[in-house]
Design a protein around this nucleic acid. Structure first.
Length: 592
RNA sequence: GCCUCCGUAGUGUAAUGGAUAACACGACAGUCUUCGGAACUGUAAAUAGGGGUUCGAUUCCCUUCGGAGGCACCA
């Protein structure tokens, strides 16, 4: 027996009572809000409407059939009507055994599907600039991208993680010019500063000076021109500074445990897209203005493109220039080119862009243009838009230095975790404290950022936002370590071959089984809605339920039959916590 | 001005066209001879205002108020 088979059996049973069903009816079985109400429930609203009855009436009529005209199956203890709901009480012995065995047998594959088998999914995220270090907003992007990649992997799809590095343009030249003027030949190595921070200092320096000396902006434009012409000294400087910046960025990625399969650099591809626009012009999909600029008219368009889970109906996206009068490309040209490039290179079944909500409009434009240009594959593109991260003062602005720097934040959190760990375990060796503090602090940070629905904006208060208690990553890690501690204390030489699950079934145990039972559908929901927060909340809830259980019931001191059953249960809980955290990019600790 | 998104306890976040709106922080009151207190129990506390659709709306529609983002031949 499997969890899916349990569901199928229940649906078959219900179908016997429901001879007249609406077309394409989908049976939804979910745990009721209160434990006393049963293990699963079936709501009668839609059936009632179809039968033109009141839902309460339908539920009570149906309930009467079960156990009389329609015999119950072994799996089902009883079915009760309560208001408009049919509450199903399962035979716990079968149910618990099925759940436990499936979790422990499938281990880290529990809850995975095969819906994406044979498919390729491209997910592009992070997109750093090489003129400054990453900030808190980038962290949100990185964690979201990484977790979504993991989540899509659970469908059996091949996931390709791509990073597009923004390494050219005016802003890059700003830090270059500042270094050229005031750098005095310093290097990150000599100054002992992380490369991206080193370069970032010159970006800030430029902005400070440019306020009083606007002519610096002309110099930047001149430098950009020289860069595009391939001026040797400018290129040397550019390569040097980019290398510094990228080295720094890579250190941060390694620290936070984020990886990419493929790196794109804008400097390589910023001209791509020109040919596509020229072709489109020949096909009259766009037009040339009197001043020779090529433009596309998106004033009257209809769209059903999925930018978000909702669909847009009518759009007026305005007119967009695709090539400047002098023939040079604009940002959107490059995006068009890159989209095509990626499509040709990987031929993904789905392409996901993890980019902040401030670019919602840009993506609507991009997807619309690709659609008009006849690229059918754009229909499987998706902009995973996420809300900006705000500080109490407002939006983070890197030019003014009002940001939460990612590396600094991580370091601060780590220090905090160190003192917390040491407080709780005074005898621990310094290396062990450091090791644990790193894992705990990253868990706190990742869980904090992933528990938000992506579209929700985050208001980050550095003083108050992240804690190691309550609704937090470390709380979940602690729960895991606690279970592990119990399991370690148990002498596994004792034979526990035959588990009698009928001894389990108190309120706390049953609640745990319910959460394990619905884990696969939570996972699926997170994938389908591009929203890891469902998984984050579920694993938090599972941890809370375990701790409630822990405080009310003994495992090791229970009589052997009961103890053995509970051991299996908590093993399964630990497994699901571990897997969930892994998907969220959070490491576990056996002890903490 | 136009477009998009968002207003849920003191605070930060969940949830859903349907059962008593959940969780955490903070406050207050407890658990403490404990399989690890980064824990657990309890109390007070919320769907911005006004209309509409519906048997039923916090959810969908309209509107007022408030917040954010966008509307470049910048990236």
């Amino acid at each position: 027996m499997t969890i899916d088979q349990i569901k199928e059996n229940l649906v078959d049973l219900l179908k016997k009572a429901l001879l007249d069903l609406p077309k394409d009816f989908i049976f939804e079985l979910e745990p009721p809000p209160q434990p006393e109400m049963g293990d699963l429930c079936f709501s009668c609203f839609k059936i009632a409407k179809h039968l033109n009855q009141s839902p309460d009436q339908t539920a009570s009529d149906l309930a009467k059939l079960f156990g009389t005209k329609i015999p119950l199956i072994d799996l089902v203890d009883k079915i009760e009507a309560k208001g408009p709901y049919l509450n199903i009480f399962l035979e716990k012995n079968i149910w618990f055994e099925t759940v436990c065995q499936q979790v422990l047998k499938q281990k880290d594959k529990f809850g995975h599907t095969k819906t994406g088998k044979g498919k390729k999914i491209l997910i592009e995220y992070s997109a750093p600039n090489t003129n400054k270090p990453q900030h808190l907003g980038h962290l949100r992007n990185n964690f979201l991208g990484w977790t979504m990649a993991n989540l899509f992997s659970t469908t059996g799809a091949k996931v390709i993680k791509a990073n597009l590095v923004n390494d050219r343009g005016v802003h890059i030249c700003k830090s270059m010019l500042a270094y050229q003027k005031w750098g005095q030949g310093k290097t990150p190595e000599l100054e002992k500063i992380k490369g991206d921070h080193f370069v970032g200092q010159y970006y800030v320096l430029f902005e400070e000076n440019a306020k009083e000396n606007p002519e610096l902006l002309d110099e930047v434009q001149e430098m950009l021109k020289q860069w595009e012409e391939g001026n040797a000294s400018v290129m040397t400087l550019w390569q040097q500074m980019n290398q510094w910046a990228i080295n720094g960025l890579k250190q941060t990625y390694e620290k936070i445990g984020v990886e990419f399969d493929y790196w794109y650099f804008e400097s390589d591809i910023y001209n791509s897209g020109k040919k596509i626009v020229q072709k489109a012009l020949k096909k009259k999909l766009c037009y040339q203005r009197e001043d020779k600029a090529i433009e596309i008219d998106l004033t009257h368009t209809n769209s059903a493109l999925r930018m978000r889970p909702c669909e847009y109906k009518k759009e007026n996206l305005g007119k967009k220039v695709l090539l400047r009068p002098n023939g040079t490309s604009v940002y959107i040209t490059q995006d068009i080119g890159l989209a095509k490039l990626r499509q040709d290179q990987f031929e993904p079944n789905k392409a996901i862009y993890v980019v902040g909500s401030e670019q919602d409009y840009s993506f609507r434009v991009l997807f619309k243009i690709l659609e008009i240009f006849g690229f059918d594959w754009v229909k499987s593109s998706y902009h995973l838009s996420y809300g900006l991260v705000f500080l109490p003062k407002g939006k983070m602005k890197s030019r003014e230095g009002e940001i939460v720097d990612a590396d600094n934040l991580i370091n601060q959190m780590e220090q905090l975790a160190k003192s917390e760990t040491l407080n709780r375990n005074p005898s621990l060796s310094p290396t062990e404290v450091s090791k644990r503090a790193e894992i705990i602090s990253l868990a706190a940070l990742k869980f904090y950022l992933l528990k938000f629905t992506p579209s929700q904006q985050v208001n980050f208060d550095p003083q108050a936002s992240i804690s190691f208690e309550g609704d937090s990553g470390p709380y979940i890690q602690y729960t895991y370590a606690r279970i592990k501690s119990i399991l370690k204390k148990f002498d596994h030489k004792e034979k526990t071959n035959k588990i009698d699950y009928s001894v389990l079934g108190n309120k706390e145990e049953t609640e745990l089984f319910k959460l394990l039972f619905i884990f696969p559908q939570i996972l699926e929901k997170s994938v389908n809605t591009y929203n890891p927060s469902h998984l984050a909340h579920h694993v938090l809830r599972l941890s809370q339920r375990f701790n409630e259980f822990y405080h009310q019931h003994r495992v090791l001191k229970a009589e052997p039959k009961l103890r053995n059953g509970r051991l299996k249960l908590i093993q399964a809980v630990a497994e699901v916590i571990k897997n969930s955290l892994h998907l969220l990019g959070i490491k576990i600790l056996e002890e903490m």
